[in-house]
Design a protein around this nucleic acid. Structure first.
Lengths: 192, 192
DNA sequence: GTATATCGATACGCAACCGTATCGAAATCT
DNA sequence: AGATTTCGATACGGTTGCGTATCGATATAC
């Protein structure tokens, strides 16, 4: 572990350009259509420079995907309803980004042939958010806002799915009002 | 328009074998990874025989996709609730088929790079079902079961999305009980 | 029987990528 | 200055798939 780096240092701007080009190629052609040559060409660099960092398309794709990872922050204090709206609205804002939804489309679509990428994307991008949601839902049961016999996993599904399905299939933006409608409808429907 | 076919007739069993092989290749490798050679090999036929019917992968993929088209039948007489459950449950049964959900995953995933296939799949497979659902929802408003200021497009989204999201991302089967929970929760939440 | 079309098998030239190698110029540390 | 590493450019052999062409064998209509 010398830790000392000798020789010419790597250009960090090139890393960013590669990731950016990879995302656009991924959106345009998918995982199966991702080509090292196309990425290098789009990023405006030599193939050698690309292979020095990622030795194949799979690693490159996973690296590009992980650039969407964000630190999730818990909702501020408030009612179960307000916390749910806050969390789901954060999800809405992410999915309303065309690049984000396009990548998620690709990840789910290529999940069969690319299980590693699917697992990575799921674990690092959506799972943390889901944990927070589930915690609030359990609090809802404890507080008597949600009936105790409700299947909370399915409740979470009912609340979050419309965002995903709308952006995955309709390619429509989702409004904050629609988020509130969803949360309020489900909570009212599941009141004890 | 002679309509008279001379020469050796085409073997219809081969058409079926091709479509079947195409679907499996599509599931395994996606639209971008679909190869005429692989389809011919899996179907156990010569490449010539394949090219005689479909001259490129795009036409072949669309043909394979359209084989999932089904004649939709309206729900039997009954309450708005029962008709909704009937329609959504029919949707559930289709999505619970691994081949169906896998193909739908691929279609949405490759929607960007393959808009024709996406449009075909959407128009022929899901749209007819959606029309029936919307009709029942409008009747729900007329009958006073659903509050009149509800956004019916979003209501449909709330009812149908959990099935799609669950099979698209979780890869879990959806039970009929979960369908009933969804319909009942949304209807109760949207009661006037 | 003859014309016509399908089917399997095989081969072909062509293009796109792969992953590697080589070379010289440039940037940084000791 | 000298060692070391990055970067761009280019070339290479190998693989895969494309779309077409050419066979001979086979099945049907006229």
């Amino acid at each position: 572990m010398t830790g000392v780096k000798r020789g010419r240092p790597r250009d960090e701007a090139i890393d960013a350009a590669i990731i950016d080009a990879t995302i656009e190629e991924l959106i345009a052609h998918g995982f199966a259509g991702l080509s090292m040559e196309a990425v290098a060409a789009r990023a405006g660099i030599a193939k050698t420079t690309l292979y020095r960092r990622w030795s194949n398309t799979k690693e490159l794709a996973i690296a590009a995907m992980c650039s969407f990872e964000q630190s999730v922050q818990g909702p501020p204090e408030g009612s179960v309803r307000d916390q749910l709206v806050c969390l789901v609205d954060a999800m809405r804002r992410k999915w309303n980004d065309p690049r984000y939804s396009a990548i998620m489309r690709r990840i789910t679509g290529d999940g069969v042939s690319n299980p590693e990428a699917y697992r990575q994307g799921r674990d690092r991008i959506v799972t943390p958010h889901i944990r927070l949601l589930d915690r609030v839902l359990r609090r809802g049961v404890d507080d008597g806002v949600i009936r105790p016999d409700a299947d909370l996993v399915w409740v979470r599904q009912m609340i979050t799915s419309p965002i995903m399905a709308a952006t995955l299939t309709l390619r429509d933006r989702v409004s904050k009002a629609q988020i509130e409608t969803t949360v309020d409808t489900v909570l009212r429907g599941l009141a004890p």
